[in-house]
């Protein structure tokens, strides 16, 4: 049996599948608790259901993208391990980089099905787990204290209709900073990645940003001006889909 066939064998599916199933149970527990708590606290059930519908539709497209990451890694690590890594804790941009670095240190030069050994695989798998586990470790140690310190407020201070403080504004600003950094990187990449100010870099991400932003503008118009609030449930996912379709079409030209 080849190494890749070994890495695709039933025991690995069982081990990885069991961990994923356990994480799914955790998500269900948190979901049911939050829903019940929301109802008991007097929140509108319609809003809670809309949050779930919107989050589900929002997540489908990125999840398909993540699935592609699983497929990409399955060539050298087998299918079960990338399936576990990207279902639990992992991140698309992280896995391939760490797996490649880990493969070099495992003595097989790099990620490739030809050079993979079972020993190298277990070494790579352990390093992938250790490198990304720190967010969880910090959560266990400091989540409660950190949230307390920065001030989760008491319910009576924070009723829905109460005017928000700087905290809310700061979080929106942080998100604006995050989006700015990524869009800035697309601009910089296009302008200078093939030599400073040569404008010969990859322009596709920028086009996708513009198209999906434009489609989002149409959805906002429909929602706010035409009073079609239901489009909010699909606006982000649909904007993304049109933006991604634009990438395919432009690439075909």
């Amino acid at each position: 049996m080849s190494v890749i066939a070994t890495l695709n064998s039933l025991p690995l599916y069982l081990i990885c599948g069991a961990i994923i199933a356990f994480v799914a149970v955790i998500c269900l527990v948190f979901m049911v608790r939050a829903y019940r708590a929301g109802v008991k606290m007097g929140m509108d059930e319609k809003v809670l259901k809309r949050v779930m519908t919107s989050s589900a539709t929002f997540s489908v497209l990125p999840a398909v993208g993540i699935l592609l990451g699983v497929i990409a890694l399955s060539g050298s690590l087998g299918l079960p391990w990338p399936w576990l890594r990207l279902s639990v804790i992992g991140a698309l941009h992280y896995e391939a980089q760490v797996a490649q670095g880990a493969a070099e240190h495992a003595g097989i030069g790099g990620l490739s099905p030809e050079s993979m050994t079972v020993s190298a695989f277990t070494t790579i798998a352990l390093l992938m787990s250790i490198c990304i586990m720190w967010g969880m470790v910090l959560s266990v140690l400091f989540n409660r204290g950190y949230l307390k310190k920065i001030g989760i407020k008491n319910p009576e201070e924070t009723a829905l209709n109460k005017k928000s403080g700087f905290g809310d504004m700061a979080m929106s600003a942080m998100f604006i900073g995050l989006v700015s950094a990524y869009i800035g990187s697309y601009i910089g990449s296009f302008v200078s990645s093939e030599g400073l100010f040569t404008f010969k870099g990859d322009f596709l991400p920028l086009i996708v940003v513009l198209v999906s932003g434009l489609v989002m503008a149409i959805f906002v118009y429909l929602s706010e001006k035409k009073k079609k609030a239901w489009v909010d449930n699909f606006s982000v996912a649909a904007s993304m889909l049109v933006g991604m379709t634009a990438a395919v079409l432009i690439n075909l030209l």
């Binding site: 990524y182 596709l204 920028l206 996708v208 940003v209 198209v211 989002m216 982000v236 395919v248």
Partner: peptide
């Protein structure tokens, strides 16, 4: 190209909303 641009597609939509 579609799946290589999931993140730009996401940030384009979010940028409009937030900016």
């Amino acid at each position: 190209p579609a799946f290589s641009n999931v993140v730009p597609a996401l940030f384009g939509a979010m940028a409009y909303k937030y900016f």
